[in-house]
């Protein structure tokens, strides 16, 4: 087993607090830094992913972004879990290239796609924003970038139990209330007017701890 690696992030950068992480709860380093145990990425890979996600979904005057939501933590857990190793994909031989209408036919798992993609972005996190954007534009049409973009959006807006959308910053940003049990009174009442109830997570509304798929 490889040495356990950590991602160190500033407390003020993540939205309020990180939601629970089951057995591997993040621990506070001093008062300003969170040490998040990584499940798949190395520390240097995590820094590249965090930096790239922050260019895809930046933190700016339009609101918080991938850094505050903890997108890199979401992606790390997804890749460490069954999705990352293609547990649910048909992976029998032979692998052959096909028409786009037949979907992804590659042999590589999401983990392998990330690992290879990140190797080509070495040093990315040290670049300035303009150089980072140029580096991402150069890989914009690759399957790796497609995954990174999709996963960044997912990490912004997932239920916090999956490690992203920390403090529900993503849901607050778009006025999504999360899994509410009833809009019976509101569904015909708010025609053309924004209805923005305070978001609640699945754990909050169901009153029980839910085991996410990445833990299976």
């Amino acid at each position: 087993m490889r040495r356990r690696e950590f991602l160190e992030i500033s407390v003020s950068a993540v939205g309020g607090a990180l939601i629970y992480s089951l057995d591997r709860r993040p621990t506070l380093l001093g008062a300003q830094t969170l040490r998040v145990p990584l499940r798949f990425f190395t520390a240097s890979e995590a820094k590249i992913v965090a930096a790239a996600a922050a260019r895809i979904f930046p933190s700016d005057d339009a609101g918080p972004g991938a850094n505050e939501a903890g997108v890199v933590i979401y992606i790390d857990r997804q890749l460490a879990g069954p999705y990352g190793r293609d547990r649910w994909r048909y992976t029998q031989e032979p692998f052959e290239a096909g028409l786009p209408e037949l979907g992804y036919q590659g042999r590589e798992t999401p983990r392998q796609i990330y690992r290879a993609g990140l190797a080509k972005l070495a040093g990315f996190d040290a670049l300035d924003a303009a150089a980072q954007d140029a580096a991402l534009r150069a890989i914009e049409l690759t399957p790796f970038f497609a995954l990174l973009r999709t996963h960044t959006i997912e990490g912004m807006f997932c239920d916090p139990m999956h490690g992203g959308n920390a403090g529900m910053v993503g849901w607050q940003l778009i006025g999504f209330p999360g899994p509410s049990m009833s809009f019976d009174d509101e569904v015909e009442k708010y025609y053309g007017r924004a209805f923005r109830p305070k978001p609640q997570s699945l754990e909050q509304i169901s009153g029980e701890r839910v085991k996410p798929s990445e833990e299976s």
Binding site: Y83, D86, R87, W88, R89, Y90, L202, S213
Partner: peptide, 22 residues
């Protein structure tokens, strides 16, 4: 009641047949 999760049900498709099997 514990299934109102977009990732595991809408994206990871927990209620569907497992394509790795068939």
């Amino acid at each position: 009641s514990a299934s109102m999760d977009e990732l595991d049900y809408y994206i990871r498709l927990r209620m569907m047949q497992d394509p790795s099997q068939e």
